[in-house]
Amino acid sequence: MSDLPAIEALDLRKSFGENRAVQGVSFQVNRGEIFSLLGPNGAGKTTTISMLSCLLRPDDGDARVMGRSIRSDPSGVKSVLGVVPQEIALYEDLSARENLTFWGKMYDLRGSKLKARVDEVLEVIGLRDRANERVGKYSGGMKRRVNIGVALLHKPQVVYMDEPTVGIDPQSRRNILDNVVRLKNEGMTVLYTTHYMEEAQELSDHIGIMDHGKLIACGTNEELVKLVGQQTRIDLTLNAHVESVAAAWREIEGVSHVAAENGVATALVNDSNLALPHLFEAASRLSARITSVNIREPNLEAVFLHLTGRALRD
């Protein structure tokens, strides 16, 4: 039984009218690991998590969470699950303590056990001193921490975190990432969605890359980077003619996968020392002024570019 994966998604599909939000997604998350779903906004990450949380019923396919089917045993799935939604899903006119107490009751905690867990969680999220203030008066980062705390009240075996660091200050972000690692160390399985490549790289044992409702790659960070070989990514920010420069780069030898987006031309090159003069020369020839240059060794963003032909932007 303990060898079974914590999460097993089997050909999950979901459409909203004409929009095929998730198209046959399958993956597996081992117990006690952090699995990140990485992809741009609209890739289908939240829809996938909603199906795994039994919020949305899949059109087709199934998933098992700790061996329980989301189709036939949603109640069993919910009992082992803690969900941290993308939004601050809290009651802002209640204090952090009142919120945690209410949510604890929703997770069937009562009496002294509930009180003890609320105190423990307040300690973990570092808000014990301000527990009686209304959540509406908290900063964005503090709200995020309470948002996470709610999902941990009943000590779930699996935690879903849907973009928990969106729109917060670096200090709170650091706190949240540290907590995610702590949860893993405590034996919890974490399914983490993000469109921040750095977070996925730092946290994950395995990463699934999603785009347009499909899981286009899955593996460890190292396995994924290998997909693009040893290519280096070069970003040139230009004042004009980005599309024309990108078109010119495609003709240069040693350059693969060129993209142009938001005034930035991006290229994957085999050897940056050889390619850079040619890239500069093409920009100069087209009268495009270079305002910044960024050279990055192979990473997940390069993988995304390699797989989709588009940059994974924040």
């Binding site: 949380s53 039994c54 919020l55 109640s75 919910k78 009992s79 699950l81 969900v83 939604p85 939004e87 601050i88 899903a89 809290l90 009651y91 802002e92 949510w103 929703m106 997770y107 069937d108 709610v150």
Partner: peptide
């Protein structure tokens, strides 16, 4: 309305409520 807009309702439904 606020419960639905903030998606707190959705969160409630991820529990056994």
């Amino acid at each position: 309305v606020a419960e639905r807009k903030s998606r707190t309702l959705q969160r409630l439904l991820t529990t056994n409520t």
